[in-house]
Design a protein around this nucleic acid. Structure first.
Length: 308
DNA sequence: AAAGAATTCAACCGCAATTCA
DNA sequence: CTGAATTGCGGTTGAATTCTT
């Protein structure tokens, strides 16, 4: 049994595309626009699978594709983004106008990874000092998962030492809540109690907006709710987040996609770290590098914690 | 010049996420 | 709400090209 194939492969062309096929595909898309890949080949008179048409268009025929070698600047950006995002090629490609995920993936696998491998290991003296990892954070070696994960919620946590009062309050609240769990219903939790974890558990922390404003300590906010709220202003007050740059690089959507969520995380991290909270390295690259120990992704949630 | 090795990159594949009926 | 259809993504393959001997 198993999943049925995306199309009947019998009688379809495979392998390299001919100029005639390219023309047919381009003409059709110019006339009817992108999408409907499954039925496109039949309508366009192509003996190709829809998936193959989509790939050909996205990676080769699109008019906005940039041809030519990857520049040194682009390479530097790819390396930096890869350090931050791992093998999320489409995300990386999104930051390189005109470049495709396939191109960047190939470039990485052939050129960059080789360069990185061939680089001599830095000596103790020249090795970049990473910031001290806060308590409860993951080991520094486990930085960013290479496999893209669903990311629908964002979790911020200030390091424990930065919020002793809030910690106490939360612990008391949690104890109180546990004690009353069987008989009472929680009504004062903000963000709304509807914000449950993917596994159905209620948020482990709760707080009012005042609490957020004073302590920068909240959790389990639904991303769409977060983006549409006025919390961005509160963040700006702390120099930690810049939704403006997020919005300018992402298409508007009421329900942020995984990609948008990831971009959000990236923007957040950049703005956060560049705001000079903890480090004074001169460039973005080393800032991101210094931040990497504080990034982790677990069970579809991003955890960003560090020195604020 | 020829053969084999190495490299490049377009295309394919399977799976997961998202959308639709 | 559910299952099917569709789309998108990252890993992998292999033909074409380039390099080395």
């Amino acid at each position: 049994m198993g999943r049925s194939p995306c199309c009947a492969k019998v009688g379809l062309n495979r392998g390299a595309w001919t100029a005639q096929e390219d023309r047919g595909l381009m003409d059709y898309i110019r006339a009817h626009g992108e999408g409907g890949w499954r039925n496109l080949p039949k309508k366009a008179g192509l003996k190709r699978c829809g998936k193959s048409c989509r790939l050909r268009w996205l990676n080769y025929l699109r008019p906005d594709i940039k041809r030519g070698n990857i520049t040194a600047d682009e390479e530097e950006l790819i390396i930096r983004l890869h350090k931050l995002l791992g093998n999320r090629w489409s995300l990386i490609a999104g930051r390189l106008p005109g470049r495709t995920d396939n191109e960047i993936k190939n470039y990485w696998n052939t050129i960059v990874s080789k360069k990185v491998k061939d680089q001599p290991k830095p000596s103790k003296e020249t090795r970049i000092m990473k910031p001290k990892v806060v308590a409860n954070s993951r080991p520094a070696t486990q930085v960013v998962r290479t496999k893209a994960l669903k990311c629908s919620r964002v979790l911020f946590l200030a390091p424990p030492q930065a919020r002793p009062q809030a910690m106490q309050q939360q612990q008391q609240q949690q104890q109180h809540h546990r004690a009353n769990a069987d008989t009472t219903t929680q009504t004062d939790a903000v963000p709304a109690a509807k914000n449950k974890n993917a596994d159905g558990k209620a948020p482990c922390l709760a707080g009012s907006e005042d609490h957020l404003a004073t302590d920068f300590d909240f959790s389990q906010m639904d991303l769409s709710e977060l983006l549409n709220s006025d919390l961005s202003d509160k963040f700006r007050g702390f120099g930690c987040c810049n939704y403006g740059s997020y919005n300018s690089t992402s298409s508007a959507s009421s329900s942020p996609s995984t990609e948008q969520a990831m971009m959000f995380s990236e923007e957040m991290v950049q703005s956060w770290n560049l705001s000079g909270c903890a480090h004074d390295q001169a460039n973005v690259g080393s800032n991101l590098q210094s931040l990497s120990p504080f990034l982790d992704c677990n069970k579809g949630e991003w955890l960003a914690s560090g020195i604020i």
